[in-house]
């Protein structure tokens, strides 16, 4: 399938490449591929893996046979009375929330991370400035949950122990219950996510920016390009591959996102995401079949991004 106009520069045998790849492949097979196959198998069985999922169908209700767990995973959160209830319930379901997370958090972290990486590149105390953005990554989720409670806390009288509500009330406003008011609560959680993960994007993007040869940027400046122009037409194109990598990574991280929601709201008040729902089905409800079906859906959701990456992988080879 590979068009071999990408001939390798050096001689290589048939075996050598595999010597480089095999150790990693073996480890991944044992720790990820084999358990995943196990997971796929379980997703077609009932709650404790003793019979086919089809046996859990209830008479008189819709049934997808062996895909019954998938039916549950996909439709249980929807209110299908009519189109508008279905639409509304979708946006409060774990899938709807996932879309909100994907759009807002991925954009937020990548843009902020990129802007900060570029800006910090030009100041004296770069390491110090970057470490501030990086710091939230180093705080464990428990710690982050505690501190954001002090930001969002909803005090009910004169005393506000949450900073945001203290500011709002001192300006004469009414306090807001940030974590239980639908639909703003999901966005409040996304802010926590952006706060934690921007440091990740910044670090990776910063190392890409560092690898742009100085001469290239200087040349553009000498040609009279403004700083913004240098950023958009020199830097961004050069680091575009890295931006794709960061976006893909963030998409994957957001799809897997669990701790922030679990620690702060436990998925209540319509803030569930796919991973928290999977956890609830697996462990709180001990519904292994349904939990694993959700996990498989999660893996399927990543396919568009795989395609995107393979395309870029091929392009990169043709170009060089």
């Amino acid at each position: 399938m590979a068009k071999t106009n990408v001939a390798p520069v050096m001689k290589q045998g048939k075996v050598i490449p595999w010597l480089y790849v095999l150790p990693a492949l073996i480890i991944m097979t044992i720790f990820i591929v084999y358990p995943m196959i196990n997971t796929i198998n379980l997703s077609f069985l009932n709650k404790n893996g003793t019979a086919s999922a089809a046996t859990t169908c209830v008479e008189g209700e819709p049934c997808w046979g062996i895909f019954e767990n998938y039916r549950y995973a996909l439709t249980a959160e929807l209110d299908t009375t009519n189109f508008s209830t279905a639409w509304n319930s979708f946006w409060l379901s774990s899938y709807g929330n996932m879309l909100k997370w994907l759009v807002v958090m991925v954009t937020g972290t990548v843009v902020l991370g990129l802007v900060f990486a570029v800006l910090a590149d030009r100041i004296k105390h770069e390491a110090l400035a970057k470490s501030v953005i990086f710091m939230p990554m180093a705080i464990s989720f428990v710690g982050a949950g505690v501190i954001w409670r002090f930001m969002y806390n909803y005090g009910t009288s004169k005393v506000q122990t949450g900073l945001l509500n203290a500011i709002i009330t001192s300006l004469g406003g009414e306090p807001v219950a940030f974590l239980s008011t639908i639909p703003i609560n999901t966005f409040m959680l996304i802010i926590v996510g952006i706060w934690m993960w921007t440091g990740f994007c910044m670090t990776i993007l910063s190392s890409a920016i560092k690898s742009i040869p100085n001469e290239v940027i200087e040349a553009a400046r000498i040609d009279g390009a403004g700083e913004f122009k240098v950023f958009t037409s020199i830097m961004v194109p050069i680091i575009a591959p890295t931006i794709t990598v960061v976006i893909t990574t963030m998409v994957i991280n957001v799809l897997k996102l669990f701790d922030i929601v679990y620690v702060m709201t436990g998925g209540n008040f319509s803030t569930n995401v796919i991973a928290t729902r999977m956890y609830t089905e697996m462990y709180t409800n001990s519904q292994d079949g349904r939990g694993t079906a959700i996990a498989v859906i999660l893996v399927i959701a990543i396919i568009p991004f795989i395609v995107m990456n393979i395309r870029r992988f091929m392009q990169q080879e043709v170009m060089r």
Partner: peptide
């Protein structure tokens, strides 16, 4: 305290302390 939003948003320990 705080009606419905107070009930929903207050931590169970904070409710004791109040």
């Amino acid at each position: 305290i705080g009606g419905a939003q107070g009930t929903l948003s207050t931590g169970f320990n904070d409710a004791i302390l109040k």
